[in-house]
Amino acid sequence: KELVLVLYDYQEKSPRELTVKKGDILTLLNSTNKDWWKIEVNGRQGFVPAAYLKKL
């Protein structure tokens, strides 16, 4: 499993997105899109802007 660090808080703006908090370490599911990465948070899957995340 690949992990990502959340660099900035992000509030979901659609049902396909997820809310994340700065400092969270989460599972990366897909990073093929350069702008939006798919991650998992508490069993939910969704997208967060790639600029808000850093691969560990």
Rank of each mutant, 00 (worst) to 15 (best):
K1Q: 15
E2D: 12
E2H: 13
E2T: 15
L3Y: 13
L3K: 10
L3P: 04
L5D: 01
L5E: 09
V6Q: 01
V6S: 02
L7Q: 04
L7S: 02
L7I: 09
L7E: 03
Y8S: 10
D9Q: 03
Y10N: 01
Q11D: 15
E12R: 14
E12H: 14
E12C: 11
E12G: 15
E12S: 15
K13M: 13
K13C: 11
K13L: 11
S14N: 13
S14L: 07
S14F: 08
S14E: 09
S14A: 10
P15Q: 10
R16H: 13
R16W: 15
E17M: 06
E17Q: 13
L18S: 04
T19Q: 05
T19S: 14
T19Y: 05
V20A: 03
K21H: 15
K21R: 15
K21P: 01
K22S: 09
G23Q: 02
G23H: 05
G23I: 00
D24C: 08
D24P: 00
D24Q: 15
I25N: 02
I25A: 02
I25H: 04
L26W: 14
L26A: 15
T27I: 14
T27C: 08
L28N: 01
L28W: 02
L28A: 03
L29N: 03
L29K: 05
L29P: 00
L29V: 15
N30I: 08
N30A: 11
N30Q: 10
S31V: 07
T32R: 12
T32S: 14
T32D: 15
T32Y: 11
N33Q: 10
N33R: 09
N33L: 09
K34A: 14
K34T: 12
K34I: 11
D35F: 15
D35R: 14
D35K: 13
D35Q: 13
W36S: 04
W36L: 05
W36Y: 11
W36H: 05
W36T: 03
W37P: 01
W37C: 02
W37E: 00
W37H: 02
W37G: 00
K38Y: 15
K38T: 09
K38C: 10
E40F: 06
E40D: 06
E40L: 08
V41I: 12
N42L: 11
N42C: 10
N42H: 10
N42Y: 09
G43L: 06
G43D: 09
G43M: 06
G43E: 09
G43C: 08
R44W: 06
R44C: 07
R44M: 11
Q45D: 09
G46D: 01
F47E: 04
V48S: 01
V48N: 00
A50C: 06
A50H: 03
A51S: 13
Y52V: 12
Y52D: 02
L53K: 00
K54H: 11
K54V: 13
K54G: 05
K54Y: 12
K55H: 08
K55F: 08
K55D: 03
L56M: 12
